[in-house]
Amino acid sequence: MVSIENFGISFNETRILENISFDVKPGEIVTLLGSSGCGKTTILRSIAGLQKKHEGYICIGNECVSSKEIYKKDREVGYIFQDYALFPHLNVEENIAFALYKLPKKQKEIRVNELLEQFNIQEHKNKQIHQLSGGQQQRVAIARAMANNPKILLLDEPFSNLDAMLRYKTKIWLKDLIKQMNLSAILVTHDKKEALSISDKIGIVNDKKLVQFDNAKHMFENPNSLYVANFLCEINQLPNTYIKDLGLNIEENKVAIIKIEDCKVSKNSSECKVKILDISFCGEYYELVLDFIDYKSKTILVKVSSIDNLNISDEVFMHIDKNNIKIIDK
């Protein structure tokens, strides 16, 4: 339903993105992840037609809607902004109706009532936006985005203004909605757990490019670089000299990583001695900051359920199954 091919964009002399290509099928949720300012929202704005000048092609269905030669304003796209972009001087009903300005009055009333019922906000239709909770405001924003029956839904940090429990419930509700209506959805978020739990596919943007685009589970288990691994997983980077002592081959342009949960510590002797630099209580677990004694490296983290007989400055042993180590690009 959505196809991005060789997309690139610059602002003045600053290159923002280049050679971005990916597809989103009907009923599929794709999440874009990357550091702040990497261009994720610029991709959404370009698909929506809010950003006109760019390189490459944006196609919706079988039609190219945007390139250097083509720009079509009317697109079957719904856009949900991070701050919802609702009009404070209009009530709920009027905010939704605003998206239906092309419809005759009677048809507009029918469609607004359908949306109020669909999104369970009928009782709030005469309220001003400031009278609504964050979750209710979000439902109004989604209802307005869905008013014209779009085929594509663009979501820019849609859950960032919600508390943890409401975020969880809304995420499930929105995911079901997208699947039921067979929409193509593109989500921008900074929350890796959110991305993994809602996405069919994930694209990681770094240094102007899409560095990995893959099925969410496969990417989590097989990151192609240290940048991707750090974005999706809680990992430790292990010293190359330690990896060689384990009998594993590693090239200079590679790094060895292991998931934090695969690192264990105890006072039982092993080949890897570490020193405890810090202990933090994190609720369900304790987090230990460790330093290798025999290898130069960055500090590493280990999670333990109990700290019985463990103290800061203690020398203990780390236990790692080398089958859990992945060697990837820097």
Rank of each mutant, 00 (worst) to 15 (best):
R75S: 14
V65Q: 12
S225H: 04
E287Y: 04
K217T: 12
Y286K: 04
V92E: 07
R75N: 10
N19T: 01
L115T: 03
V30A: 12
I80F: 10
E315C: 08
I16H: 01
L166M: 06
L183Q: 09
L174G: 06
I198D: 11
M1L: 02
V112P: 11
R15F: 01
V112F: 15
S197C: 07
L183I: 02
L155H: 10
K209S: 07
N19E: 07
I202R: 08
S133A: 08
Q82R: 04
K303R: 00
I260T: 05
L226C: 11
T14Y: 00
P158T: 06
S225M: 02
S280N: 13
Q107T: 05
A97K: 08
S160V: 13
I4E: 03
K322C: 13
G247K: 08
K175N: 10
I300T: 13
D156Y: 05
P88R: 13
M219P: 07
I47F: 13
Q107W: 04
D278M: 01
D23P: 05
S266C: 00
G61D: 12
D163W: 05
I257K: 07
L183M: 09
E5Y: 07
S66L: 11
L277Q: 13
N6M: 08
I70S: 09
Q212I: 03
E76Q: 15
L166H: 08
G49L: 15
G8F: 14
S197R: 10
S306K: 01
I142H: 07
E117T: 13
S270T: 13
I276C: 01
E117I: 03
G203E: 14
P26R: 14
K53G: 08
F7E: 12
E123L: 03
Q131D: 10
D294N: 10
D262V: 05
I9W: 03
F7P: 06
E69L: 08
K322M: 14
K105S: 05
N62M: 10
V140A: 04
T14F: 09
K169R: 14
E284L: 15
Y295P: 06
S21L: 02
C282H: 15
K217L: 05
Q131I: 07
G61E: 11
Q82A: 06
K326S: 09
F213T: 10
G8D: 08
Q212E: 02
N120E: 03
H124M: 06
K40M: 02
L310C: 08
L116D: 03
Q118G: 00
I279A: 12
G283Y: 08
F81A: 00
I4A: 06
E261W: 01
N12K: 12
K125I: 02
V302K: 09
T42V: 00
L248H: 03
H89K: 01
L248M: 14
Y285I: 09
D321H: 12
D329E: 04
I47M: 09
E13K: 13
S36E: 07
A185W: 05
P104M: 09
G247L: 05
K25S: 12
E315H: 11
A164G: 12
E284G: 15
F98D: 11
Y71A: 14
P150N: 00
F81K: 07
P26C: 03
T31V: 05
H130I: 07
K192L: 12
A229E: 11
S160Y: 04
I235A: 10
K296M: 00
